[in-house]
Design a protein around this nucleic acid. Structure first.
Length: 957
DNA sequence: TTCCATGCTTA
DNA sequence: GTAAGCATGGAAC
């Protein structure tokens, strides 16, 4: 026996982080046949201990990382919950879940296994295994021994030195998800893995990166690469935090400054304590020769015959002559216990809160209950192919799901319906009668989406409220208005996203294949959330100006937009296909040229690589940096370089323009168009902007190119159906007109009343030149400043736009304000109003909240002030075109016209009109748009509408 | 797989 | 200087 062997220069100490090993063994055991994971005689769980034993046996025999140990330390964790780190930071490892119930009874068995090998169990109250390992490692290192640390915990890589290596054993099985090959890290390997950081800087890196599993805060958004980059630049965490103000990337700088305390705390949490009391003398870790009989007795007690046989054979023991260890044989499985904390009132926790309807009788009962209540929350659950069912909430915490069109699991094309659903015609019939009943109020979210799905089923949704739009009318600018956000904000609980039902990754399934019983609690909660939100928001809305906005500018838009989306706009598939191929060959040609000019291939789509090529490899002058510290390669920069005679930047601009047109427009529109009708159906959002503008997505049809010749070829592919034409009508200078009204500028009002060129008139007033003698450059400057005012102007922005000095720009603005004092009053008055109230209003009473107006950060506060100055202008324009859209269908109907509204692009409406009625439609559309502010708002300037008819959108625009 | 920065399209 | 959405590359998770 060598148990007296003193730890010294000839020794090889292997330190095993037992707890991490046991956890890994446990999870590995879960992937195996459950019958191998329990003791047959009484069901005592043994899966983790079996794998742990096998691994320990391997360490004793073969060592780790090629090191056969003379000393072996098996170190356990006994202090995560009360360690000194907990005192520093109560949340430390607070998110660790409880030890699994079937692992807990195995822990004593694991310790027994260690003792069966003749080794001490190393553990110490209130001390984490990491600190014990660190102390043993430093101790042995000091004595000249070779050390291998076996752990899955990367924190321990801090200890790596010329004498200390880190070994992370293979986990999982080859070819299966989560498999990791073994890793054997010496100093060089650690430095490579940590992106150039020496082991003694790993603690700094860990403090920045944080660790979700240990609840170490770190700095959000910083990962290994960024941390290493920063630490190599600054030398250490302390130096980095002291010099954080000099970090170039603004986001990163603010982020680190804001989280500096968290990083300091994290640094202390990840610091290893190399001087804890050692519960076992290091010399006592000397590895004894294994006692085969004792090991076999252990394995027999756990009823692991295969392992017992193997150990007996390798250690030349007669297994038959060994009796099971009596104490262990008597150990039995304890009964686990424990229950979670009380849940919040939403979502409801009663087991029958979110039920399911399976019979006609039940359905009739619920419909009757909804009618009796006079209002109910609902969620029309939809899959790719349309409505799947409807959930109803008749009172908070009580909802039910009526599944109708779910498919049976595993059935594809020809699959039948899922079991337990009422006949579709019957179910939809009863539900449609309820949804169309004007006497019962329906409360939902995304009413537009629900209305479209209902429309496909042949019914409308009458007397409905949309809690998302209610929230938008009340709190635009304060929060998002999606159901989960509203639930968190107002109900104190999280509403589910129905997408969770489909799972993710490879197991993702269509919504219609989800079992009705699985869907019921989720969609039931959505109906419940809608009803509860209504109960919160309705009292806040009633009797306020926001109520009128909701009722007159939000809700009436729902059916209008639903019809526009359902109608879609026709594209010329052949033309777009031709364009795509054209763009493709242009790109291929440009790519060759660019690579040639650059002296080698690179990702042309990568701004980072472009910067490297232009400013590093080719050394072009005049490079600027982006806010993120990279080389800026935006169009401005490339244009300057191209103007200086460089070919490569010019080709890059061509490439970017062409790539944009191909991928964002030609290809995306072809992919989006309905293959049967060649029509593209966008989705308009009513509640996506702070100002009241709409937004368009999937695809966005509000940013179709128009400025360049090539781009207009895309727009020309938006065509009318046979026998029809495209009508485009847009407001002329609407925002400047509104500025003239809001700021009450007599000269501007007159110019608009007389129909003279507003920018020339501005220039004339500013520089005392007759309107018809204003030079082009002067007019351009006036135009820029006019737009600048609408956008909340700053001398900085104006100087950038005009290419003049900051000082000159400031003088320019001063002169403008001198000539148009009303505008200065408007700008200053609007800022003051926003500072006082935290919001601004449009002329129609829409509120736009700007909580950031009170920011202590001057540049941020000025940014919010610009938003506040712009919002009444942009928002009033948005309100006006909404009014036009709401009135449009009635006006066309009244005139006996059958034009269909297709798109809204902020100041423009696009229609598809029967060729014969184009002229008459143009008059009606123009009249409705021009008169849209009246009667609520009496504008001091006329609204002018320009309309045109053609065969495609490009020529109509 | 998800998120961020960059760049580009529109009003 | 305002308001949006989307493609791409690259890093984080």
């Amino acid at each position: 026996m060598s148990s007296t062997l003193v730890l010294g220069p000839e020794s090889r100490l292997v330190l095993v982080d037992a707890s991490s090993f046991v956890f890994r063994a446990y999870h590995q055991s879960l992937n195996q046949d459950p019958k191998y994971n329990v003791r047959p005689s009484d069901g005592l769980p043994t899966g983790a201990v079996r794998l742990f034993f096998a691994k320990l046996f391997q360490f004793v025999r073969d060592g780790a990382a090629g090191v056969v140990p003379t000393h072996l330390g098996i170190v356990f964790d006994k202090g995560s919950r009360e360690s000194h780190r907990r005192q520093l930071f109560p949340e430390y490892k607070a998110n660790r879940s409880e030890t699994p119930a079937d692992l807990r009874p195995q822990m004593p068995l694991v310790r027994a296994a260690v003792r069966a090998f003749g080794l001490p169990v190393i553990e110490l109250d209130r001390t984490e295994a990491d600190d014990l390992i660190a102390t043993y490692a430093r101790n042995a290192e000091a004595k000249g021994a070779e050390v291998v640390i076996v752990s899955a915990d990367k924190d321990l890589q801090q200890l790596v030195s010329p004498r200390v290596r880190f070994y992370d054993a293979e986990s999982g099985s080859k070819g299966k998800p989560g498999y990791r090959p073994e890793r054997n890290l010496d100093v060089d390997a650690v430095v490579a893995k940590w992106e150039g950081l020496q082991p003694d800087r790993i603690g700094d890196a860990l403090a920045l990166i944080g660790d979700a599993s240990d609840n170490i805060p770190g700095v959000p958004g910083i990962g290994l690469k960024t941390a290493a980059q920063l630490l190599l630049a600054y030398g250490s965490l302390e130096a980095l935090l002291d010099g954080a103000a000099t970090i170039k990337q603004p986001k990163r700088r603010e982020n680190i400054l804001a989280n500096a305390e968290g990083a300091r705390l994290s640094r202390r949490l990840v610091e290893l304590d190399c001087a804890v009391d050692l519960p076992v003398d290091p010399d006592a870790l000397a590895l004894p020769a294994p006692d085969g009989r004792r090991l076999v007795a252990y394995l027999k007690a756990l009823e692991l015959p295969a392992l017992a046989k193997r150990v007996a054979k390798e250690l030349s023991v007669d297994a038959d002559g060994v009796a099971p260890d009596a104490d262990l044989a008597a150990a039995s499985a304890p009964v686990p216990a424990g229950d979670g904390p009380a849940l919040p009132p939403f979502p409801a926790t009663e087991p029958d809160a979110y039920g399911i309807v399976e019979t006609r009788g039940q359905l009739d009962d619920w419909v009757a209950a909804a009618r009796a209540a006079g209002r109910f929350g609902f969620h029309l659950h939809r899959g790719d192919g349309g409505a799947l069912g409807l959930s109803l909430a008749v009172e908070p915490g009580r909802a039910v799901y009526v599944p109708v069109e779910h498919r049976a699991a595993g059935d594809g094309l020809f699959g039948g319906l899922a079991a337990g659903q009422i006949d579709a015609a019957e179910a939809w019939g009863a539900l449609a009668a309820l949804m169309e009943d004007p006497e019962v109020r329906k409360v939902g979210h995304d009413l537009k989406g629900a209305s479209k799905a209902a429309g496909r089923l042949g019914f409308a949704i009458a007397a409905a409220d949309d809690v998302g739009l209610m929230s938008y009318a009340l709190e635009s600018g304060l929060t998002g208005h999606e159901l989960p956000q509203l639930a968190t904000r107002h109900l104190g609980g999280a509403a589910p996203d129905p997408e969770v039902l489909r799972g993710h990754g490879r197991g993702r399934i269509p919504a219609e294949s989800v079992a009705p019983r699985a869907a019921a609690p989720v969609v039931g909660q959505l109906a419940d959330a809608a009803l509860r939100l209504w109960a919160v928001l309705k009292p806040r809305l009633d009797g306020t100006p926001a109520q009128r906005v909701y009722e007159e500018l939000e809700l009436p838009m729902v059916p209008v937009l639903a019809r526009m989306e359902a109608t879609g706009v026709r594209i010329d598939r052949a033309a777009l296909g031709h364009l795509s191929r054209d763009f493709g060959s242009t790109l291929a040609r440009l790519e060759t040229e660019i690579h040639g000019l650059a002296g080698g291939p690179f990702q042309i789509g990568s701004p980072k690589q472009i910067g490297d090529v232009l400013f590093e490899r080719l050394g072009l002058p005049g490079g600027r940096r982006t806010p993120g510290g990279q080389w800026a390669t935006g169009a401005n920069v490339l244009e300057d370089l191209a103007a200086a005679g460089h070919d490569l930047p010019a080709r890059l601009l061509d490439w970017r323009r062409t790539a944009k047109l191909k991928s964002t427009y030609a290809d995306a529109l072809l992919a989006a168009a309905d293959p049967g009708t060649d029509r593209v159906h966008t989705t308009f959002s009513l509640a996506a902007t702070t100002t009241g503008r709409l937004s368009s997505s999937d695809p966005n049809l509000q940013n179709i190119p128009v400025r360049t010749e090539e781009g207009r070829r895309i727009r020309a592919a938006f065509v009318a159906a046979e026998g029809h034409r495209i009508l485009s009508a847009d407001y002329s200078q609407v925002e400047l007109r509104l500025l003239a009204h809001l700021a009450d500028v007599p000269r501007m009002r007159e110019a608009f009343a007389e129909g003279v060129d507003i920018h020339a008139a501005t220039a004339s007033d500013m520089f005392g030149v007759p309107v018809d003698a204003v030079p082009g450059e002067m007019r351009r400057r006036a135009k820029t400043i006019n737009f600048g005012i609408v956008y909340g102007i700053s001398a900085f922005g104006l100087s950038d736009r005009l290419g003049i000095g900051r000082q000159e720009a400031a003088e320019f603005i001063a002169r403008y304000f001198e000539r148009f004092p009303g505008i200065r009053d408007y700008v200053e008055g609007t800022k003051a109003f926003c500072h006082e109230h935290g919001y601004v209003r449009t002329l129609f009473g829409r509120v736009c909240h700007y909580p950031g107006i009170a920011s202590g950060n001057a540049s941020e506060r000025m940014g919010v002030e610009r938003q506040a100055v712009n919002a009444p202008i942009q928002g009033t324009a948005a309100d006006i075109i909404r009014r036009a859209m709401i009135r449009m269908e009635g006006a066309l109907l009244k005139a006996g016209l059958s034009a269909r509204m297709l798109l809204q692009v902020h100041d423009e409406l696009v229609f598809e009109v029967p060729a014969a009625g184009a002229e008459a439609t143009m008059r009606v559309v123009s009249d409705v748009m021009a008169g849209a502010a009246a009667p609520d708002v009496d504008l001091a300037v006329p609204l002018v509408v320009e309309a045109k008819v053609a065969d495609d959108w490009e020529r109509a625009h």
